[in-house]
């Protein structure tokens, strides 16, 4: 832009003003241009800064805990009695609880989500797809506390009466709800990457005599796999970070189910522990620090998941050649 203005010496049409800038105007323009860039840069930086600050504060509040208590005990024992006379901080069952509900939620959500994405991108009529997609996205807009109420008041009694579960608020309940909440993310990211697989691949496949089924499962899904993996990881992040629903639906019993596959037992997640305990914990007490230590574990987990999803999203973009 600057180059054009400086090189054009003709008077502007109808104004009589010269297009040649006075030194002051030139300086002003220069400053405006660069200050504007600087301002936008700073605004953009502020969100990066916020992330760094969050990391900094969470870790800073967790450090006293790590210096005063044993990290191995924190990560490997499962008695969590932070307010006892001799407090015990064993977060193992909380970490396992988070993984339980997250993985179980993915078991429900991934097949459903990917099949729905394929249906939307390759099978259904465009008109119907344009109707279904917004409806799915509404799922993401429902407040999580509303899901929680559904879990406690509808799903929990139903599980007890129909399936004979001893308790209705359990790992299964929480993971069913979480899978519903993760679905919109998984469907929309997976659908994007499946649609991004070029028409030429599909046509070549059909041209070779492949059926639609073969085309979908042997050509399109392998071609879109990075995007689909990214979708799964994003769904997983959604599930592991969710608080309100697991707080209401999982029962919050501080235990690892035994036998390990028994999802009908209550579990307690890291997020629910932080949310539930934070209210009454005095600042700068071991209990307070321990909650931040859980926060660090959670941050590290989501951070790793984020890096994985970024990697696969980037490789999905490279493959399809689109930005």
């Amino acid at each position: 832009m600057d180059d054009i203005v400086r090189n054009d010496t003709k008077p502007a049409a109808g104004t009589g003003q010269s297009l040649v800038l006075t030194p002051l105007q030139d300086l002003g323009g220069f400053l405006f241009h660069h200050l504007g860039r600087l301002l936008l840069f700073l605004i953009t930086c502020s969100s990066v800064l916020l992330v760094l600050l969050i990391f900094f504060f969470v870790i800073r509040e967790a450090i006293p805990f790590l210096t005063k208590f044993s990290l191995t005990e924190f990560l490997t024992t499962k008695s969590w009695y932070p307010e006892a006379a001799t407090p015990k901080f064993g977060a193992l069952s909380l970490i396992v609880g988070s993984l339980y509900v997250t993985i179980a939620a993915l078991v429900f959500a991934v097949p459903t989500g990917i099949l729905a994405a394929i249906f939307l991108s390759d099978i259904v009529l465009l008109k119907i797809r344009d109707f279904i997609k917004p409806v799915i996205e509404i799922l993401a807009a429902i407040p999580s506390v509303a899901y929680g109420f559904f879990a406690v008041l509808v799903l929990a009694p139903w599980m007890q009466n129909k399936w004979g579960f001893t308790t209705g608020t359990n790992a299964l309940n929480a993971s069913i709800i979480l899978s519903i909440m993760a679905l919109p993310t998984i469907i929309s990211v997976a659908e994007d990457s499946i649609s991004a697989v070029g028409r030429e691949l599909r046509e070549a496949s059909y041209g070779l005599g492949a059926t639609r089924f073969e085309t979908i499962f042997k050509v399109i899904i392998p071609a879109a796999h990075s995007g689909i993996i990214a979708a799964i990881v994003l769904g997983m992040m959604r599930a592991i970070g969710e608080t309100m629903v697991v707080w209401m639906a999982s029962g919050n019993a501080n235990q690892i189910p035994s036998p390990w596959w028994d999802l009908s037992q209550s579990v307690r997640t890291m997020t629910a522990t932080i949310a539930g305990d934070m209210g009454e914990t005095p600042k700068d007490s071991p209990h307070y620090w321990s909650l931040f230590a859980i926060g660090v574990v959670l941050l590290v987990m989501t951070f790793l998941l984020n890096i994985i999803s970024e990697y696969f999203l980037a490789s999905a973009k490279r493959k399809t050649g689109k930005s």
Binding site: K78, S79, S93, V152, L153, A156, P157, Q160, T166, T167, G168, T169, W247, M248, G251, N252, A253, N254, Q255, S266, R268, G276
Partner: peptide, 22 residues
């Protein structure tokens, strides 16, 4: 460790109301 935790009086009430062994 089997104890389940709920975060309000109404919720405790709802859980007991709907759970036979609670």
């Amino acid at each position: 460790s089997k104890v389940e935790y709920v975060n309000s009086n109404p919720q405790a009430h709802a859980r007991v109301k709907t759970t036979i062994g609670a």
